[in-house]
């Protein structure tokens, strides 16, 4: 049997329109043999959670550069749990202060990647986490 292909949703919650980072990540994950669903900018947590469920993804990558991550990331985690998607891993990136990372992790975000993280590191993290889960 063929190995399962990893499916990822890359989504931008909140109101900032800076999608370069999200696109770079999407591209890197594609080159790492993943299927990446990209939904564009200004998505509500409700839209992101519904999309993750419909698309049957293993992992949701959130990118936020507006500073509203403390609100938006935990909301996505909560909504996923409500919709029966508690097996879906949530990771985040963007402009996120160090002090916020423990808070986000406590809220159920699996990992937060800051500017300067290599795409290889993110790919490795995703592969390990998905393998561990199944």
């Amino acid at each position: 049997m063929e190995e399962r292909k990893i499916r990822v949703l890359i989504a931008k919650p909140g109101l900032d329109g800076h999608d370069r980072g999200a696109k770079v990540i999407a591209r890197a994950l594609r080159d790492a043999v993943m299927e990446v669903i990209y939904t564009g900018i200004r998505q509500t947590p409700e839209q992101i959670a519904a999309t993750a469920i419909q698309e049957g993804v293993d992992i949701v990558g959130l990118s936020c550069l507006s500073g509203a991550h403390n609100q938006l990331f935990p909301q996505v985690v909560q909504l996923l749990r409500q919709k029966g998607g508690d097996d879906i891993i949530v990771i985040g990136g963007g402009i996120i202060p160090y002090d916020d990372i423990p808070v986000l992790k406590k809220a159920g975000v699996a990992e937060v990647f800051q500017p300067g993280t290599s795409t290889q590191e993110i790919i490795r993290f995703i592969k390990e986490r998905v393998a561990k889960r199944t």
Binding site: L29, R30, A32, T51
Partner: peptide, 14 residues
């Protein structure tokens, strides 16, 4: 080449 894919049709339907 890579076997991966970016699926972007949803952007217009979100």
């Amino acid at each position: 080449f890579s076997g991966g894919a970016i699926l972007g049709d949803r952007v217009r339907m979100q």
